[in-house]
């Protein structure tokens, strides 16, 4: 007897819960052959607003955790991802990635999360500095999280997604992510992982839908402190977003010029992208 497929209608991930889009809209995710995979929630600007609210609420707690603890939480993400490895492989395969590249991509994604988990309690030592000053003072610069960061995730199904989320949360930011419109299913699975690992509600919020529709609202949102344009390929949209982001002096991380090689060993660039340097003076005692 053949079993009937369980047809899925995926939802958004906001504040640790899985709501439908406030607008009630959905769209169909299709595989490489154009066949139906699942219904996706199509997020509206109000979903983006709710996500920012959740991220702001979570920021205080997440940014003040010890870096060591943030590293543990992010490592836990990798642990849960490992258990879902086969599911990721199936989903990415359905998305049309050539079969022999799928498993390496999933493995690299999990390793990427571990890599950033390791950096969580080390980047301060590398990006910070004890500055030499002409007086009897300690002069210390330390990186502090920027705040709420909006991320337009790149097309690369899972690897691109974790490569932009992990560094932002490792440094204590909270994020609102717009998953890639065409291959959103792995992003939903990642959301389920976030919900079942130790990541506090609101630290990572994942929206599915049209980046061209939602991103301008995030770029102009006065309570968003940074925006990562990793997945914006349309130069006109990128310009529009940068202009909107200027209104409250958001930190903007531009998309890499040319095709990005997410498999390559990352640098500290993404950890450095969404931190603010604080410098304090302290008299040198005896």
């Amino acid at each position: 007897m053949t079993r009937i497929d369980v047809r899925k209608t995926h939802k958004l991930y906001i504040n640790g819960a899985f709501p439908r889009s406030e607008s009630g809209r959905t769209y169909e995710a299709l595989d490489a052959k154009g066949d139906f995979i699942a219904n996706m929630a199509k997020a509206s600007r109000k979903d983006a607003r709710d996500a920012v609210l959740a991220a702001r609420k979570a920021f205080g707690g997440w940014s003040t955790r010890t870096p060591y603890n943030r590293g543990q939480v992010i490592y836990r993400i990798a642990e849960v991802m490992e258990g879902r490895r086969d599911q990721f492989i199936a989903e990415i395969l359905a998305g049309g990635t050539p079969p022999k590249r799928v498993a390496p991509c999933v493995d690299a994604s999990i390793d990427r999360v571990v890599w950033y988990a390791g950096w969580a309690d080390k980047y301060v030592q590398v990006l910070g500095n004890a500055n030499a000053v002409s007086g009897p003072f300690f002069n210390l610069s330390t990186p502090e999280p920027t705040g709420v960061v909006a991320i337009i995730a790149p097309e690369a199904p899972l690897l691109g997604l974790v490569s932009v989320i992990a560094p932002a949360i490792a440094t204590g930011n909270t994020v609102v992510v717009i998953a890639t419109e065409n291959h959103p299913v792995p992003a939903v699975t990642l959301a389920e992982i976030m919900a079942t690992s130790d990541v506090p509600a609101g630290v990572v919020n994942i929206l599915t839908g049209s980046a061209a529709e939602i991103a301008p609202w995030l770029a102009s949102h006065m309570d968003v402190n940074g925006i990562d344009l990793a997945g914006v390929t349309d130069p006109a949209l990128a310009t529009e977003l940068e202009v909107a982001a200027a209104e409250n002096l958001k930190r903007v991380l531009r998309a890499p010029s040319g095709p990005a090689d997410w498999l390559a060993e990352p640098t500290l660039a993404r950890l450095e992208a969404f931190v603010e340097t604080k410098t304090v003076w302290h008299p040198i005692g005896v």
């Binding site: 607003r49 920012v52 702001r56 609202w217 102009s220 949102h221 006065m222 309570d223 968003v224 909107a244 209104e247």
Partner: peptide, 9 residues
């Protein structure tokens, strides 16, 4: 203004 405000304002 046409864009979302925040608690900073």
């Amino acid at each position: 203004t046409g864009h979302y405000s925040g608690p900073d304002y």
